[in-house]
Nucleic acid binder design. Structure first.
Length: 718
DNA sequence: CATACAGACATAAAC
DNA sequence: TGTCTGTATG
């Protein structure tokens, strides 16, 4: 084992963390301080120097991507594949455990993993079964409630509604939802974690076994753990355990989905001899950017405390641009993008960040008109697309006839004459007889009292599924998928749609066949390949879009920017109410999370950071006038450079004949003939103000005299 | 049963 | 203002 390869690339703090004695370690790792590297090198250190077998190491991340990268780095450091090393997401690891110990966990061997979309369907169905009005009890809220309780480790029977009738309903739905899942062998994401946690609690032997096996547990992005994940982890490590966790309280931006920053302090309390290592040297950004970020985050209370520094240059100041409105904001950003591109910067070195997805529109439109390539992060990912989920639902139903969500999803896709009424009847029967929709359908198909057309349609569906089952048996996975998408009629169904959308769907279905062909199961899996593929599809939604590697401007929310870096970053929409978001202003904790989000955004920038805001913004169809975000004023003035707007008409004015025409600050002369897109041609009569606020009075031939804001009016000189 | 239309609604998102 | 959802309509 080459120890220098492990230690040489590390600075002192990183090395301290990596070579810590076998005791609990909390690494407070600032943005861009090399935390992933520390984690990977720690594993390499344990295996290469401390003599720990990879078999005894468990590394946990929050995304599959991070897990994949982690394994890659570890294996390249160790110089060999480490198959027995467990690296994965909390959900992936929990899933693995439950597959291995389904009996102890009280699950059927063939349980199905529900994604949030499936879960919502089940909730809706439960609401119907309970005859609750879904406008008074929005399914999404119920779903949220159920997941939040599970994330806290609470089951319906642990909850007490008191006299609150609304809460009584919530709890009733939770209980009914869980009963439906249990009956159908369905496990949602939160349930994976909760079951895995209960598996520890209820099986001492099992827990003891895994404690013995995993003497070394490592966790990335520890500030993002929720209650149940932390409990699971703490149990696994055990009282004398030596977990190694890496996180940053200043980058905790997922409180709204259950993450508990408090887990950092809790860790120090639960593992009293914890060694705390701070990584504060930053290898990403300029000094000015770091100082601005430090100053900003210093406004938060109760931090563990950390100050980023760099050996690198001070760099450019933070540039703040005050736009007249959101279109001017986009024009400014795109102007800078063009200028950078002209001087040789690749588009992919530039990122436009915003608080909410809706803000991307204006930028997209402007980028399209300027023919600048861009990529928007977010949106539906491969396995979340409707046509893919339909195809998977066929596979699910073939594999497990009791999978009601799958049944409901495809019973009439493509349409085969089984409408809402029929499905209602099936549901009623299934509920009354405590059985699956599949069995209900079997009953209805042979029921003399039912409309012939209906029973025929249902029978045809049953026959189809049985036929698919029979035909796919023994085939390779990709052949199964291929057969299913063809014989189910899905391909023909989408093929009839001659639009671009239809073509894309057919392509996606074919892509699913390729995905199946390339699918590799875990080496020690005892599951059938289809089942494993289905679980994979639920647990790993896949990439959002192809073309990620093309040279294009990167656009995304600040949340999705976490973990990424770009030479030039534009943080847009810096207005109070937008960022910090209105809904976070009520409580101080919400505001602090927004500030951390701003910190995350700012620390994405390597060389240049721009902050932009619009004085006027069209939101949901109405014009709003916002104030610059308070986060801007929290930056030290000496680090900030305000960019003076230079208002220009589309063609600089070249005086034709008149001498010494009085010129407005924006370059338009009095008496000048101008053209406006809507109002037509006219003559400039007067002007006032400067910069953004510069306005001119134009006497239009058809519309009469009007005051226009030069920055916005887009006047053409003639 | 597919499409049209009205009405509601609008923070962020991995597994 | 744009998008999505559910219902009305042909």
């Amino acid at each position: 084992m080459d120890v220098t390869a492990i230690l040489d690339p590390l600075n002192d703090a990183q090395r301290e963390a990596v070579t810590s004695p076998l005791e609990p370690v909390l690494v407070l790792a600032g943005a861009g301080s090399g935390k992933t590297r520390v984690l990977a090198h720690r594993v390499a250190w344990l295996c290469g120097v401390e003599g720990v077998s990879p078999h005894g190491v468990l590394a946990v991340t929050f995304t599959n991507k991070a897990a994949g990268e982690m394994r890659g780095r570890i294996e390249s450091l160790l110089g060999m594949p480490a198959g027995s090393l467990w690296v994965g997401t909390f959900h992936g690891l929990a899933h693995r455990l439950l597959r291995m110990h389904w009996r102890e966990a009280g699950l059927p061997q063939t349980f199905t993993v529900l994604d949030s979309d499936d879960q919502l369907r089940v909730v809706k169905r439960v609401l119907k079964d309970l005859e609750l009005d879904d406008s008074r009890h929005p399914p999404r809220e119920l779903q949220w409630f159920i997941n939040a309780r599970k994330d806290e480790g609470l089951r319906a029977e642990h909850l007490d509604a008191g006299d609150d009738p609304n809460r009584q309903v919530l709890i009733r739905v939770y209980a009914a939802y869980q009963a439906a899942c249990d009956a159908g062998g369905l496990v949602d994401f939160a349930e994976l974690l909760l079951r895995a946690h209960e598996l520890w609690l209820q099986n001492e032997d099992l827990l003891a076994h895994y404690r013995r096996r995993f003497g070394h547990v490592l966790v990335d992005e520890f500030q993002d753990t929720n209650t149940i994940q932390y409990a699971w982890l703490r149990n696994l490590a055990g009282p004398g355990g030596v977990p190694f966790v890496v996180g940053d309280d200043d980058q905790s931006i997922y409180g709204w989905r259950g993450a508990k920053v408090e887990n950092l302090r809790r860790f120090q309390k639960d593992f009293p001899k914890t060694r705390l290592v701070k990584l504060e040297q930053n290898y990403r950004s300029t000094g000015n950017i770091l100082n601005a970020a430090n100053a900003l985050i210093a406004n938060n209370a109760g931090r563990l405390g950390k100050r980023l520094w760099t050996e690198g240059i001070e760099g450019d100041p933070i540039r703040v641009y005050s736009a007249f409105n959101e279109r001017d904001e986009a024009d400014f950003v795109i102007g800078r993008i063009k200028a950078l591109a002209d001087s040789g910067t690749p588009y992919s070195d530039m990122a436009v960040l915003y608080r909410s997805n809706a803000q991307s529109r204006v930028f997209e439109e402007a980028l399209i008109t300027q023919r600048i390539p861009y990529r928007v992060y977010g949106g539906l990912r491969f396995f979340e697309r409707a046509e893919i989920k339909d195809a998977l639902a066929y596979l699910r139903l073939i594999a497990n006839r009791g999978d009601d969500p799958a049944f409901e999803r495809i019973v009439n896709v493509p349409t085969r004459g089984i409408g809402a009424r029929t499905i209602d009847a099936l549901r009623d029967y299934a509920r009354a007889n405590m059985t699956s929709l599949w069995n209900a359908a079997g009953h209805l198909a042979s029921d003399e009292g039912v409309n012939r057309r209906t029973s025929n349609a249902v029978r045809a569906f049953l026959t189809l599924i049985e036929a698919l089952d029979a035909h796919t048996r023994g085939l390779d996975l990709h052949e199964q998928v291929d057969h299913v998408i063809e014989a189910s009629g899905l391909v023909a169904h989408h093929g009839k749609d001659k639009s671009e959308r239809g073509d894309a769907r057919v392509e996606n279905l074919q892509e699913l066949v390729s995905a199946a062909r390339g699918f590799e199961p875990a080496p020690d899996s005892e599951m059938r390949l289809v089942d494993e593929f289905l679980a994979h599809a639920a647990l790993e939604a896949g990439e959002a879009q192809g073309g990620a590697w093309e040279d294009c401007v990167q656009m995304m929310t600040m949340h999705s920017a976490k973990g990424l870096e770009f030479p030039t970053v534009f943080i847009t929409g810096m207005e109070d109410g937008l960022f910090p978001h209105q809904r976070s202003l009520q409580d101080p904790r919400g505001l602090e999370e927004e500030r951390r989000l701003c910190y995350v955004g700012a620390t994405r920038a390597m060389r240049e950071l721009y902050l932009t805001y619009a004085e006027q913004r069209r939101l949901h169809g109405i014009d709003t006038y916002g104030l610059p975000s308070r986060f801007i004023s929290e930056l030290p003035g000496e680090l900030v450079e305000e960019i003076r707007p230079h208002v220009q008409v589309s063609r600089p004015y070249a005086p034709a004949a008149p001498r010494r025409a009085e010129t407005t600050p924006s370059g338009i002369s009095l008496g000048q003939r101008v053209r406006h897109r809507k109002f037509g041609e006219g003559v400039v009569l007067n002007y006032e103000g400067q910069g953004h606020h510069a306005r001119v009075q134009v006497n239009f031939e058809n519309e009469g005299a009007k005051w226009l804001v030069v920055a916005y009016a887009n006047l053409e000189t003639m």
